[in-house]
Amino acid sequence: MTRGITLSQAVNEAIAEEMRRDETVILIGEDVAEAGTPFKVLSGLVEEFGTDRVIDTPIAEPGFMGIAVGAAMTGLRPIVDLMFGDFLYLVMDQLCNQAAKTHYMSGGKLSVPLVLRTNLGATRRSAAQHSQSLHALVAHIPGLKVAMPSSAYEAKGLLKAAIRDDNPVVIFEDKLMYQDKAPVPEEEYLLPLGEAAILREGSEVTLIGTSSMRQVCERAAEILDGDGIGAEVIDPRTLVPLDEGTILGSVRKTSRAIVVDEGHQNFGITAEIAARISEKAFYHLDAPVIRMGAMDVPVPFSPALEDLTVPTPEGVAANARALVRGVPVHAP
């Protein structure tokens, strides 16, 4: 049985279920207890689990991140709430130098079973320091897993799998999707880290969309449907590990690919996925792999300008049309 719940409710359910199942799971961050985060994702948890397990911290990201890494090394399974993805810069040492490397540097004696929940996404009119999509920063670091749920269903299944994983996992939720509803099973389920989903089948072009760019790709596929162009839509779900097999299999079938992601385009996720396709499916490509990331500028505060910086369904459809019709997107 499924019912429609919001992404916010899905995250809340995942945390509550895992905290009930395993008493070593704790929640730590700014405004996670009484306030329930600015996005109201965590409402009700402190009432059920108390302030010993739902811990409000001062505004000191490096501090509570460090506490969580230590707690994870010594037997707890902390879920860290980082209010905005933009604050990742503050926790880089704890996350990338400590959490990511401890298992390796201790010769496997220590593990860091920690989940860092944070968010991404522009067009919320939050200006340049609260609108970034910084998942490429952490995907670059060996030792960290990175999940990018694109719906309430994925948010719940991936978060539960992340909490049970013995490695540090960073989950990026799109802050504009917290109120989006999707069918979610009532019974328990996990979504394994490292399995992409083919959301729509098509034979002429593969659209790979992460997080909310999945919806952009799906809407682009609908537009393309009207032009008689069959687009296949793939949601990688996790960047690390990346389900290369599903992506390459699709591109070998369609011969064309567009990678869409809300991180900056330069040196980003789109570049990584495009490069893997070019390396491993080169002789199946009938067109260059196209990257579509966020514009390489600080996210503008002006709504009109901000909207121009992220990929749109129309933009994806236009590029797909060009590829299928053999019109070079970039001059040869």
Binding site: S255, F282, Y283, H284, L285, D286, P332
Partner: peptide, 9 residues
Amino acid sequence: VLASPKARR
């Protein structure tokens, strides 16, 4: 001749 990798193959 300019050709896509697949066309060339």
